[in-house]
Nucleic acid binder design. Structure first.
Lengths: 254, 254
DNA sequence: ATGCTCCTTAAACGTCGTTCATCAACCCTT
DNA sequence: AAGGGTTGATGAACGACGTTTAAGGAGCAT
């Protein structure tokens, strides 16, 4: 009965669905996702979710063992949003579509990324998503070991690209926040001076970085990130195609 | 004076170094990194850091404005651990080495990844790291726009690969935790039954996934992850080389 | 009606990040 | 050397958090 840091996972524990009461797991998870979308990880608290449902915090613990469980459920919920087109025959287009769908979902729910890095992710939607990718590659004729590597390559790229995009956007927001915060505050001009001095120093010490930052300042962050995403995706798909052709030359021919 | 969710960044705010008192920012950050390495994100609290320094929690606020600041500083601290060899002439080898060093650092400090996804990351070490990569590519003769895309591709791959590795390891730990936890507990056999039933159902519904999981069960997770990491890295480098040769054919020749 | 399980509540516990009044130690001035 | 101002440590407090628990009410079976 000793409750460790986080024993197991929601999915590995029994859950008796309630009879006909006010609440249900699904409702709770829905509210949690809504709150997370609106106010991010910081805005989510048991009391908040409970009050949004017209209920006290303690009630939630009949449906969910801990807040971590709730987050795990919320993560799998949004993982279920990713849709794929099973009719697509070309494996490259299908894989690219899967990657794009995944990326869009992660950009839609920016909190999900953080959970992805911390939670075990053993939910049914996570598994289903993995299965679709694997099947896709298997049908395309990839060797078993290559399937794993290919799937990882694509997924890792998606996750990494979204992370860098989100963190880029955040950085810009922080910098402008600091600027207007300094302008509105009382003795803010001193603090503002510190910030700009620091940034100028950085620019002096790192000329190449300064050049690239200046160049990308004009550009829309989102479209630039998409461009980079597609570029690396193309690299990966070509690399995959190369190893695919090398291995499967005898069995299948275009 | 209204303290928003998180106004700005540590690096954009003034910091007056203390005269000759017991503490210093560096000490505090060092302790924070140690605690984070040992007990992860959950183990870090202001009181813990303070007591580790023989001091009360309130004292820390003379050196650090919030806990977020401390985390931002800790993140940049470990970012500074990544070393590069400026003597390496071949850009592919240099870039690969940079990526590997980055990866190893992130695996050494598994908490850093989570921070990377949430913090603005405006520290000097972060900038320096970016600059090295950019210079490397610029010296190799990449076009300006390609430099950004190439750097992003490599960095995203590193981050994504580490995330998937960490989350894989975590999942395995959770699953075995659930199993032994069930074995040790009193009426645990029921809970254990639920877990195995769930996993069996998943395996039935997702045959390809089950096959891959069974195949990788024998293998060492770390070496398998490294294999996948290197595979995608090779894909990316080859893709970069292709676009490099296409663009720079006239200006430089091997 | 009686007993029983399922659920909700209200209150509480312990921990957390953070603030504040207090006070001690040091530096600079005189 | 004396005194004032800055710097920094303290310990108590605040509010919010996740979670637990005792108590009680709603619904069903008998």
């Amino acid at each position: 009965m000793a409750l460790t840091d986080s024993d197991g996972s929601v999915w590995l524990r029994p859950h008796r669905p309630p009879r006909d009461r006010q609440l249900s797991r699904d409702q709770i998870v829905s509210v949690a996702v809504t709150v997370l979308d609106a106010d991010g990880h910081r805005g989510l608290s048991m009391r908040r979710v409970a009050s949004e449902l017209g209920v006290t915090a303690g009630s939630l613990y009949w449906y969910v063992r801990t807040k971590d469980d709730l987050l795990e459920l919320a993560l799998d919920r949004v993982l279920g949003e990713v849709r794929t087109d099973p009719a697509e025959a070309d494996w490259r287009r299908a894989l690219a579509a899967l990657a794009r769908g995944n990326r869009e979902m992660l950009l839609r729910h920016r909190w999900a990324l953080r959970e992805l890095t911390v939670r075990p992710n053993l939910g049914p939607n996570a598994f289903a998503l993995a299965e679709t990718g694997l099947q896709l590659l298997a049908r395309a004729g990839f060797a078993d070991a290559d399937v794993d590597a290919a799937m990882s390559a694509i997924n890792d790229h998606v996750v990494g690209a979204v992370i860098s995009q989100v963190s880029w956007i955040d950085s810009l927001e922080r910098m402008s926040e600091a600027r207007i915060g300094a302008g509105a505050g009382g003795g803010g001009s001193w603090s503002e001076h510190v910030a700009t001095t620091y940034l100028r120093e950085v620019a002096d010490r790192h000329p190449m970085l300064a050049r690239r930052m200046a160049a990308t300042r004009e550009i829309d962050v989102e479209s630039e990130c998409e461009r980079r995403f597609e570029f690396a995706l193309k690299c990966l798909l070509e690399g995959l195609a190369a190893s695919h052709d090398a291995a499967g030359e005898l069995t299948r021919r275009p």
